[in-house]
Amino acid sequence: MPAAHRKPRPRSLSGGTVRTAAALALASAATVTALDGGAAHAEPELSPAQVRAKVDKLYQEAEVATQKYNGAKEKADGAQKKVDALQDEASRRTESLNSQRQKLGSVAASQYRTGGVDPSVQLLLSSSPDTYLDKAALTERAGARQAAAVTHVRGELREIDQLRGDADDTLSELRAKKAELQDNKKKVKRKLSEARRLLDRLTPEERTPAPAQSGHASRSTERADLSQAPNARAKAAISFAYGALGSPYVWGATGPSAFDCSGLTQAAYKAAGVSLPRTTYSQIDAGPRIPKSQLQPGDLVFFYSSISHVGLYIGGGKMIHAPNPSAPVRVAPIDEMPFAGATRVA
């Protein structure tokens, strides 16, 4: 057979060729994986300390969102009360207006029935001219009162329209606050879910390192020391906080059996007869600012540059606070978080 018509014989792959082909195959697979969005990329292994650091950051971000949620809820609740009050007032005024309209309608109908007779004819037909003249004067005075009643009704109509307009505006504000509420609620839940997912990687021992445990106290081991409290209100607030030790952290909660950080301080001072606003951002302005070096038991202590966490100072460099969902209300050193400021309420 001529050489031009012979089929080429397949050549066997040498060791070097096999290695080259394998390398090309691996490179191709890596390229596909990269183009596929890194689906095969394994999540980096984190040490327990790194996991705890990420969890702490997520909790802090969740607390920022929680305070925004609390603020939006406070405003939404206020807007709802305003809407209810405006609608109730509009309803009440409308009932009163309808009653006045009925009276005016009766007077107008009566005048229409008698209005066709000329006053001079009525005088001629009257058996007693003096009596007629007395009635005429009375009718004139009634007419003046009727005119005033009409003016009053017109004013009521304008005011009711204004009330309804205000109610509509407040309803729009309420809808916006509810939308903000839901947005922050989703953010909180997302952050907390991610924190739980990370914590599930750790054993119970790894989740809370020994040094951090030394500053904590449970309801059963910690006794209230009120001797250093400067006044009765501070004592009452601190006493309440001690009574809340061991209660779970629940974002958005203000007691009586669960709290978030600002919910705990608000409830503590409510027990002392002092009304605090709902959020950390507002609570820090509830009294004069106090330098860290001049702290007294009962002062509110705030943390992080975002002013997203608050505790109740109890003296000795310690506070009672509601930390996060991984820990109950407890005693802790104020130096365990970045200090942002303090406020004296009582």
Rank of each mutant, 00 (worst) to 15 (best):
A3F: 11
A4Y: 13
H5L: 13
R11P: 04
S14F: 10
S14L: 10
G16E: 07
T17A: 15
T20D: 11
A25S: 08
A25Q: 06
A27Q: 07
A30N: 08
V32T: 13
A34N: 05
A34R: 09
G38C: 09
A39L: 14
P44W: 04
E45D: 09
L46T: 12
Q50H: 10
R52N: 13
V55I: 11
D56W: 03
Q60C: 02
Q60E: 14
E63V: 07
A65W: 04
A65R: 08
A65P: 08
T66K: 06
Q67M: 05
K68E: 14
N70M: 08
G71L: 03
G71R: 02
K73M: 13
E74D: 13
E74R: 03
A76T: 00
D77Y: 05
G78S: 05
K82M: 11
D84V: 08
D84K: 14
D88I: 00
E89F: 09
T94F: 07
S96M: 10
S96R: 10
L97M: 12
S99W: 02
R101C: 02
V107T: 12
V107D: 14
Q111N: 14
Y112L: 13
Y112R: 11
Y112I: 03
P119H: 00
L124F: 14
D130L: 14
T131A: 15
L133T: 10
D134M: 03
L138F: 05
T139E: 10
A144W: 08
V150D: 07
H152G: 15
R158S: 15
L163A: 04
D166G: 01
D169Q: 14
A176C: 03
E180W: 02
L181R: 12
D183T: 14
L192E: 04
S193Y: 04
S193F: 07
A195I: 01
R197D: 12
L198D: 04
R201W: 07
L202I: 01
P204Q: 05
R207K: 05
R207Q: 12
H216L: 02
S218Q: 05
S218N: 13
T221C: 09
T221H: 04
R223V: 00
Q228M: 07
N231D: 15
R233Y: 04
K235I: 02
A236F: 00
I238D: 06
I238G: 00
Y242S: 00
L245Y: 11
S247W: 13
W251N: 04
G252S: 06
T254F: 06
G255H: 12
S257R: 08
S257C: 06
D260C: 05
G263V: 01
T265H: 09
A268W: 01
Y269L: 08
G273H: 10
G273C: 11
G273T: 10
G273M: 08
V274P: 14
R278H: 15
D285I: 00
A286G: 05
G287L: 03
I290N: 03
K292W: 00
L295W: 11
L300W: 06
Y304P: 00
S305A: 15
S306T: 09
S306H: 06
G315K: 01
I320G: 11
P325A: 09
S326Y: 09
A327Q: 03
P328I: 01
R330G: 10
D335M: 00
E336N: 12
M337R: 01
M337D: 10
P338G: 06
T343W: 11
T343G: 11
R344V: 11
R344E: 01
